[in-house]
């Protein structure tokens, strides 16, 4: 199968994780993983980010597939249930806003910069070696520490479920995936309802995404 430039985005994802150990300010680049899928979903009603541009998913495919680091078992039923997926999305966002609030406190001068990365919303890991000062407000660095924690947490969770279940099990409960699917469903509500039991494949070129 012909390879495209976007089939190598796993390198960017791996590099992102490494750069977070070198200089925490690189964590800001991770915002692309938030905004690009949201823009594609809201502007085009498409979830093409997941299977085309998601470097993290490609990394899991590589590690779990080619490197054989996955047991390849089915995910448990509760993990793919709507309740869990939406619940995890809500939880993820609450924790994201807690991180934003902590960043705000640093910007407001209420709190000093915490040179730690919070893993799995609980463990504060010392991360001072990756901070070499900033030309901007310390709040800019605080956001970087917080955001890198979010990215590292989701990677660790993704790796854990990659090992336990199928390589891309993370995709089942990925908050961005759940959110973009909800956006697409809301945006294309009428078309989906009109498609009925079987969508008109030959006429769904506008709404369909190929690999």
């Amino acid at each position: 199968m012909k390879k495209h430039w976007y089939d190598y985005l796993w390198i960017a994802s791996a590099l992102y994780l490494v750069l977070g150990f070198v200089n925490i300010l690189f964590a800001w680049l991770g915002l692309a993983c938030f905004f690009i899928p949201l823009i594609l979903a809201t502007a085009r009603g498409s979830k093409s980010y997941c299977h085309r541009y998601c470097g993290r998913g490609q990394l899991f495919t590589l590690l779990g597939g080619r490197f054989g680091l996955s047991r390849g078992r089915d995910v448990p039923g509760w993990m793919k249930s709507k309740g869990f997926r939406i619940g995890f999305l809500v939880f993820f966002f609450i924790m994201f806003f807690v991180m934003l609030w902590n960043t705000y406190l640093v910007f407001a001068g209420v709190r000093g910069l915490s040179e730690t990365v919070t893993l799995l919303w609980t463990f504060k890991l010392p991360w001072h070696w990756a901070y070499h000062g900033t030309l901007f407000h310390p709040g800019v660095a605080q956001f970087a520490f917080g955001f890198y924690g979010v990215m590292l947490t989701s990677t660790v969770l993704g790796l854990a479920t990659m090992v336990l279940f199928k390589p891309r099990s993370w995709c089942v409960y990925c908050p961005m995936g759940t959110m973009t699917q909800l956006i697409c469903k809301a945006r294309n509500r009428a078309a989906i309802r009109g498609a009925g039991e079987e969508a008109p494949l030959r006429h769904s070129a506008a709404g369909s995404e190929k690999g």
Binding site: H51, C171, G211
Partner: peptide, 23 residues
């Protein structure tokens, strides 16, 4: 129960699968 991640789209050898309306 489909999460519309498109992993199936990538592996299909005859390009028979599409993600319909991102849903």
């Amino acid at each position: 129960l489909c999460v519309a991640c498109g992993c199936c789209v990538k592996v299909c050898p005859v390009k028979a699968i599409t993600i319909v309306y991102g849903a």
